[in-house]
Simulated assay, not measured.
Amino acid sequence: MLVLLPPSETKAAGGEGAPLDLEHLSTPELTPVRRTLLETLSALADDIPASLDALGLSERQVEEVHRNAELWDAPTAPALQRYTGVLYDALDVGSLPGEERARADERLAVASALFGLVRGTDAIPAYRLSASSSLPGLGTLRGMWRPVLEPVLGAVDGPVVDLRSGAYAALAKIPGAIAVRVLSEDAHGTRKVVSHHNKAHKGRLARALAQVPDEPRDIEDVLTVAKEAGLRVEREGDHGLCVVVEA
């Protein structure tokens, strides 16, 4: 099973690992695209106005450009510790005991605009690049990632639980993946899409899927794990799950 998480715009600073070594990252077939993006992004950082424009940042966020300038030299940290924010607060991998943390590192992966896909233990630096960014001379990230990332994700043995947001889902389609959405329901039974806070519920689901000793084999197993974790979840067709929360 693979639980595919969205990344976060915010990243934890620093790290205790050696500088980035692409040869030590998982999924080596992604290395050529990773290298192209890293070289382009770090070179672009020499031109701060161009970087801010390409990344959709304001002048107050110039520190993000400085991070990109140091991609090859900055300290690294395991991916599940690098990403921060609402989903990762709910996932809270730091509190998982040894066996559960090992399962999290094995079962969870993060969709990344820069690295394509990173496993929990992959050591990466802090960076800024979003799925919607367009780097000069390279075209869209979707055009770069789809040809190499879709075969990787399509070859996963077992179910893929897709928790990605729309922009990251566009980087690679995964036929047959278990898509998860979050809806709020008011006292009258009216349901609406949850935006920002859907991340917390996805984080809780990812945590539950990391904790369970027996690896889920299909959508029914995932549904059972979610319910046992206290989530209100409904099945939607052959490949969908809906988490329902109170408005």
Rank of each mutant, 00 (worst) to 15 (best):
V3W: 05
P6L: 11
E9D: 12
E9P: 14
E9H: 06
K11L: 12
A12K: 12
G14F: 09
G15N: 02
P19L: 01
P19W: 00
L20Q: 02
E23M: 09
H24N: 09
H24F: 02
L25Q: 06
S26P: 00
T27I: 15
T27W: 13
P28F: 08
P28Y: 07
P28I: 10
T31A: 15
P32Y: 02
R34N: 03
R35E: 14
S42I: 05
L44R: 09
A45L: 09
D47H: 03
I48G: 06
P49R: 04
A50R: 10
S51R: 03
L52R: 04
A54F: 03
L55G: 09
S58Q: 07
E59R: 15
E59H: 12
Q61N: 11
E64T: 10
E64R: 14
E64M: 14
V65I: 14
H66P: 00
N68D: 11
A69L: 13
L71G: 04
D73F: 05
A74H: 06
T76K: 01
T76C: 10
P78N: 00
L80H: 09
V86G: 01
V86M: 11
D89V: 13
D89P: 05
A90W: 09
V93W: 03
G94Y: 09
P97L: 02
A102F: 00
A104W: 01
D105M: 07
D105L: 14
A111I: 10
S112K: 01
S112Q: 03
L114G: 04
L114H: 02
F115L: 11
R119E: 06
R119M: 12
T121K: 05
I124N: 04
A126K: 01
Y127E: 00
S130T: 14
S130Q: 13
S132P: 01
S133N: 15
L135F: 10
L135N: 08
G137W: 06
G139D: 04
T140Q: 01
T140P: 10
R142W: 00
M144K: 14
W145K: 07
W145P: 13
R146S: 15
V148S: 14
L149N: 03
V152T: 06
A155K: 09
G158F: 10
P159V: 14
S165W: 04
S165A: 15
A167T: 13
A167N: 08
A170D: 15
A172W: 02
K173V: 13
K173F: 03
A177S: 15
A177R: 05
I178C: 08
I178V: 15
V182S: 07
L183Y: 03
S184F: 03
S184L: 02
E185R: 14
A187D: 07
H188R: 13
K192N: 07
V193G: 05
V193Y: 07
S195M: 07
H196Q: 06
N198V: 07
K199H: 05
K199I: 01
R204P: 00
R207T: 08
A208Y: 06
A208N: 09
A210Y: 03
P213T: 02
D214V: 15
P216G: 03
D218G: 15
E220F: 12
T224E: 11
T224S: 13
A229Y: 04
G230I: 10
V233K: 01
E234K: 08
R235T: 11
E236C: 07
D238L: 13
G240N: 05
V243D: 01
V245G: 06
E246F: 01
